[in-house]
Design a protein around this nucleic acid. Structure first.
Lengths: 135, 135
DNA sequence: CTATTAATAGATAATTATTTTCTTTTAGGA
DNA sequence: TCCTAAAAGAAAATAATTATCTATTAATAG
C-alpha cells in the first residue's frame, strides 16, 4: 500500500492527490464503478476534479496493473481495484455488479485450449442473473 | 430459414430487403462484425444503406433472438447470428474474434451459483490469447 | 528550503459509437 | 391497386471517451 510511492517512482509517475484518492476509492468499494460514478464520488472531496482526470487516472492505473477494466456488456467500462482473476455477476434487474469470490476458474484456460488453436493467456467470465434484492 | 417470414409476421415486423441482407450476412460470417463492419459490407449491394438502419436492425434482430450481442472489451459491440451459447476468443494481437465450438460450459452457471446468492440465468465467457497467425 | 522541470490537472474541444427525430418510402394486407 | 403502419435514411442529438492546451504541481537537485 505504501509501496505505491515506490511503484509510481519506478514508472516515472507522480503520485498526485487525485490519483491517490481515486485509487483509494476503488480499493474501498466493491461496486465496480464506472468513470462517471468515480467522478461523482471524488468530486465531493476534490471540487476541481475533472472527468478527464478520472479517465486518465484509471487508464494509468490499469497500465501499471493496479486496477482492471471490466466490460459487462453495458455501454461503458467499469473499474475494479481487485486485480485478482475472478468472475463477476451482473443483476439483470438493478444492474449491480458483484464479485464472485473464493472460486478458481483458471482451469478454463487449459480446458478451452483443447478446442481452439489459440494460445490462451486469460479470460473474463461474466454471469447474469438476479441478486438477492431483486429476485 | 424461410420461417423467417413467419417469425417476422408474428412480431409485426416487416421483412425488408435491408433486414434480410444484414441477417444473411451475419449468418454467413464468423467474423463477429461490429455495426460499422456490417455497414461497410452491406453498402456495397445497398448503396442507400445507412448506419442507423444497421443499428436499428441488429437491435431488432437481438430482440427477437436471431442474433446475440457480444462485448469482448472493446469500445463497441459485435454481433453474432450464432445464438447458441458458446465462448469466444479474442486475439490480443490482431483483434479477431472467433467462436470456441463443440464445448459445453453451461455447467458453470450451477457451479458459480454455489458461491453467490444470485440466481444465475446466463453467462458470457471470453478468452484472450494469440491466434495461430499471430503467435 | 528553494528553484527547476517534466509530468499532471483541469478546462475545453474533438472523436467515436450509438440513438433519436423526422420525413419519405415501402412491405404486406385489405 | 390502395392503405397504413412500420421502416429506411438523412441528419441532428447523446453519451462515453480521448485529445489538446495551458496553468499547476510533485519530485528531484542544488
Amino acid at each position: 500500500m505504501e509501496n505505491l510511492a515506490l511503484l509510481f517512482k519506478e514508472k516515472n509517475l507522480k503520485l498526485t492527490p487525485q490519483r491517490y484518492a481515486i485509487y483509494k476509492y476503488l480499493l474501498s468499494t466493491k461496486a465496480h464503478p464506472s468513470a462517471e460514478m468515480i467522478f461523482e464520488k471524488i468530486i465531493v472531496d476534490y471540487p476541481t476534479m475533472s472527468l478527464a482526470t478520472v479517465y486518465k487516472t484509471v487508464k494509468t492505473l490499469s497500465e501499471i496493473g493496479l486496477v482492471q477494466e471490466l466490460n459487462v456488456g453495458e455501454d461503458n467500462f467499469r473499474f475494479d481495484a481487485n486485480v485478482s482473476k475472478h468472475p463477476h455477476i451482473v443483476c439483470l434487474s438493478c444492474g449491480r455488479v458483484d464479485d464472485i469470490e473464493n472460486v478458481d476458474f483458471s482451469f478454463l484456460n487449459k480446458e478451452a485450449e483443447k478446442y481452439t488453436d489459440y494460445t490462451i493467456k486469460d479470460h473474463q467470465l461474466y454471469f447474469y442473473g438476479f441478486c438477492s434484492e431483486c429476485k
